[in-house]
Design a protein around this nucleic acid. Sequence first.
DNA 1: GAAATACTTAGCCTTATGGCTAACAAACTC
DNA 2: GAGTTTGTTAGCCATAAGGCTAAGTATTTC
Lengths: 111, 111
Amino acid sequence: MANKLDTFFSALADPTRRAVIERLITGPAAVSELHEAHDMALPSFLKHLGKLESAGMIRSEKIGRVRMLHIEAAPIAEAEGWLKQQRHLWEGRLDRLSALAEQIEKESDDG
Amino acid sequence: MANKLDTFFSALADPTRRAVIERLITGPAAVSELHEAHDMALPSFLKHLGKLESAGMIRSEKIGRVRMLHIEAAPIAEAEGWLKQQRHLWEGRLDRLSALAEQIEKESDDG
DNA sequence: GAAATACTTAGCCTTATGGCTAACAAACTC
DNA sequence: GAGTTTGTTAGCCATAAGGCTAAGTATTTC
């Protein structure tokens, strides 16, 4: 996947991974602590963490035998930015359409 | 995929599909018109349109032999909403952390 | 230093994804 | 009504995704 947005959105397209993000928003946590909330084998869960990390959404640091995970806010803002831009373009278009509708109405009153 | 957000984010995780959204933001278009911009066979392209439609992000209407596509804004707002919420929780957490840091600093001045 | 803890790696399985070609169907156009 | 345009359907292929078990490694802990 070439694009950053590809990996961001694809990382968010899974409930397990969104749940991890939602948890990490409240503060750092260890792998095993995060894993407790999810009913799947550890290696499967690690794959999800791997995707979040390679999408740049989390960082990890190994301390002794424990790996601590932290969230990285920038990609969230970036993905949100794309959506916001699309929505603004969309709203702008609606505005132009309604302006056009008004103008047509006015012209038909004049004529 | 059970969740709405799953299908929304997964629909956005592909550059072809984001390009279609970006194009449709500017107004409705026919399948063949949209297809022109993408270097792939029509059936492949139709699969992308199918995903956008089943994610509820676009609507389509067949007029004669031409199928017209329109964008549906609600899902974009919904996905953006999730990201915004996460970002706000995150910023709230940073605020609490810096408040805590200030308090600790103040207490160490007092002590 | 043996045992327990906390990952980590390797490898397998099934289903989904994203691409293709070929053939079909419906609606204009001449 | 023959031909062209514009999808649509069916079916194939390769790779990625998301799950598993089993076995291995590195750190504590007792």
